[in-house]
Design a protein around this nucleic acid. Structure first.
Lengths: 229, 229
DNA sequence: CCAAAAGTGTTTCTATTACACCCATGT
DNA sequence: ACATGGGTGTAATAGAAACACTTTTGG
């Protein structure tokens, strides 16, 4: 490659930061780590890392997510590029933020200990370094918009889930109660959930039927114009 | 500043590219330039430039827009970060794309000649270098979403505009006809347009009343939840 | 007087909201 | 038998879509 035509001596580092969302059945949480290096070592931070020369920015984000969680094939979306001059106190670092949705149960406690990571409820997030609080806030807004129009909420649940679980998730994301009957009707009317014969029995005596999200049914439909809530 | 803790020798250049939209009264257009340097000199391209060490990414985008158009205080929004390894054939350049909305009449013909720039109708865009076609496409989608929920369409029109002009704009953005009565009712019901006594008389014998967008009225309202179409 | 674009209401339909009782089961 | 959470239908309301004629005026 020849970049000789690009005369540009400025040194800007490029990083990615990941907002990782999980759902514990009642609350929406984000995975926050204790930063392990200076500056700001020991403070709460999003998981991040530098983009390497031979890897795409998307790839870097996936790698950073993998380093923290050991997970691959995770729903992940680019959020925004944060490019203020002094956002990182140690140098000129431009960061591309991504948010990921994972099933909280898939995250191993071992890794959690290794990285001094913690799932914080979105209401109890401590103060984060740099502009990470802003990133998290923006991710929350994006998630709220996105989840209304695309079937990404399922990414936060297990393969099998019950309608009450799904409703709890939406209530957590929207931070408000949703009418059970209206919710059930709407979500089932989309025709993308398959009801299983099996019931979830731990959270009630009656038990709630499990459902699975049928990705292929969804793909057949127009991706546009589908309202999930 | 001390970046010694950030051991990172990779050389990634950071650029911005601008999708500049204008509206000619009938069609939505984008401002495309003949690239003046290698690689790909002489080919059609978006206007772009590198981010300098002492300037924010947003600032770089505004500067690049200014260099091409001489305009400041323009509506501009970050679109997406394009970070594939080989997107630029001459080196590793990550680009943050922005889109801007300008009143096409504010763009001087002199500058247009200086930069070998051209307003292309979105249906007649030539093949662009690198991933610029993808950028433009993404900007179009974003504009469509955005214009439905925020009052940014006005940025593409003159200070004073008529309802038929505004409707033409929305029809161009959505690429389909809109019912005149429904459109008028909806847009006026928002209470953010002020009708002037003056009429625009060039495009019809009867003449159409001018309106102005009242920014302050809009600011008073909730920015969220307002549907424009 | 006529061509051309502006302006204006009503009805239909669809989607959203509000709302309360019975069901199944483990203890 | 009862406490707990799961499941279900209908009526009222609001928002979106469909639709056609009259007005103005320069030529």
């Amino acid at each position: 490659m020849d970049i000789s035509n690009y005369r540009h001596d400025d040194r800007i580092l490029l990083a990615v930061d990941c907002i990782i969302f999980g759902f514990d059945g009642k609350e929406l949480r984000a995975l926050i780590i204790k930063r392990g290096f200076e500056p700001e070592a020991g403070k709460w931070s999003l998981m991040g890392g530098f983009v390497n020369e031979g890897e795409s920015v998307d790839r870097a984000a996936s790698r950073v997510l993998y380093e923290l969680t050991g997970l691959t094939n995770i729903y992940m979306e680019q959020l925004y590029c944060f490019g203020d001059v002094s956002r990182d106190t140690a140098g000129r670092v431009v960061s591309i933020a991504y948010y990921a949705l994972i099933n909280i149960a898939d995250y191993s406690e071992q890794l959690q200990r290794d990285h001094e990571a913690k799932w914080y409820s979105l209401h109890e997030i401590p103060s984060l370094i740099f502009d990470h609080t802003e990133m998290l806030h923006k991710a929350q807004l994006r998630l709220r918009e996105k989840v209304a129009n695309q079937p990404i909420g399922f990414e936060l649940l297990a393969e099998k889930f019950t309608l009450p679980q799904l409703q709890n998730l939406y209530e957590a994301i929207y931070q408000g109660p949703i009418d059970k009957r209206n919710f059930t009707r709407k979500i089932l009317s989309l025709g993308i959930l398959k009801k299983l014969a099996e019931k979830e029995k731990t959270s009630s005596r009656k038990g709630a039927f499990y459902y699975v999200f049928e990705r292929d049914k969804y793909s057949q439909l127009e991706h546009e114009g589908m309202k999930f809530i």
